Computed example of a mutant assay.
Amino acid sequence: MYREKVSAILGLLSRDKSVQELSLKFLDAKGKDKVDVLISLLKDKDPRIRMAVANVLGWIGDIRAVEPLIDLLRDQDEQVRCEAVASLGRIEDPRTVEPIIGMLKDKEPKVRVYAAHALAKKKDPRALEPLTYALKDSNWLVRAIATEAIGNINDPRALELLIDALKDGNRSVRKTAVQALGKQKDPRAVKPLIDALRDEDFIVRIEASKALGNIQYPDAVKALISALEDKYENVRRAVIWSLGKIGHPSAVEPLIQLLKKGNPHLRWEAVKALKGIKDPRVVEALIYALGDVADYVSEEASKALVEIKDPRVIELLTSLIFERWMLSHVRIKAVQTLAKIKDSSVVELLIRALEDKEDSFRIEVVKALKKITGQDFGDDKEKWQK
């Protein structure tokens, strides 16, 4: 009977009115308002029913449920209190904040976790001070979610609290603090985040790298370049991403070095990062990457050359296709890149390239001419010239 009753309660969430009517009928409430029916079921003797009802009321979001759910916070069952807190977190009503704050002191860690989650959604400044105390909770998950909640609150006091959370003994708390600081994008967070690049946990170092990239403050570049020596590849990849995001010219040379000695994943990241930096050395570096032995790196370089819209790109690519000593796949990639750029000024040069003796190269030249001009004369040079 319990399962059928819960199914009926959940059926009240259905968008299908016929399902809702069947659910009300099963609950002996045919024709009655579903919210009123659910509120009355909050007094059911079975905690599993009360839990299901609290959950559904939260998803419905009707403010009539606020006071009954607040009363449910005193329920003897831990999971019922959890669902009541979660539902109050989903309902948009100012009356919900203070009762949720009160649940940060619940005797059960799980309820405190739910309360911190709910406050993270609310983003209400009234919760800042109580969340400060939650940062000292004995349960690490409460501290981590309280840190997230503080990061969501638009209050100047939040910054120092998040910086303090970087000293927490639990890596998940520190990771959450780093992520929150990255979202706030406050330059005052740069130095603590640079320090976090040396955190003992590599996940924290990854998030610190990303956070510095999000803040985009040039003072972080030197520390990020040093972090390219991190022993974990995923940290180095995050660092490369951030260097591209900040876009400072001092990162160009270290990224070029990665194109020459890094593994394929790092070279791919370096190509993407270079694309975001405005510096004359970038074009030559991307041309170099066009010849990478890893196809996905070469293709990324090709896309980057198209996107940066530097006038030197066409000149360098066209000269490349006539370098007969150059490896075939590099010349082909140069032609394919010119096809993507679609600049009519290269048509005459591509027609000349039809004289090449290599079949696979000429095939790509024909494809490029067709893409740029919209015409197709195969590899007949005379027809293309006319």
Rank of each mutant, 00 (worst) to 15 (best):
I287P: 06
V283W: 06
S298W: 03
A294T: 15
K303H: 06
V293L: 12
K303A: 03
R281A: 14
A294H: 12
I277V: 13
K303E: 12
Y296D: 14
D295S: 14
E299H: 10
D310S: 14
K303I: 04
V283D: 11
E269S: 13
E307G: 00
A289E: 01
W268S: 05
K303P: 00
V282K: 02
K303V: 03
L266M: 15
D295T: 13
A273V: 10
A301Y: 01
Y288F: 12
I287K: 04
E307F: 07
E284A: 09
E300M: 10
A301N: 03
I287R: 06
D310F: 11
P280S: 14
G276L: 15
R267K: 12
V283C: 10
G276Q: 15
E300Y: 03
A285T: 03
I308E: 08
E269T: 05
A304K: 07
A270C: 02
D310E: 12
E300V: 02
K275N: 10
L266Y: 10
L266V: 15
D292I: 09
L274Y: 03
G291M: 00
Y296F: 15
L274K: 07
E284S: 10
S298M: 05
E269C: 11
V282M: 07
L266R: 11
K272Y: 02
V283L: 08
A270L: 00
A273Q: 10
R267Q: 09
Y296I: 12
A301P: 01
E284Q: 08
A270K: 00
V306Y: 12
D292Q: 08
V297K: 05
W268I: 05
D295A: 13
Y288P: 00
R281V: 14
E269R: 12
V282Q: 05
A301Q: 05
P280K: 09
A289I: 02
E299A: 13
K272A: 11
D292M: 02
V306Q: 10
E284D: 15
K272D: 05
S298I: 03
D292E: 11
A304R: 09
K303Q: 08
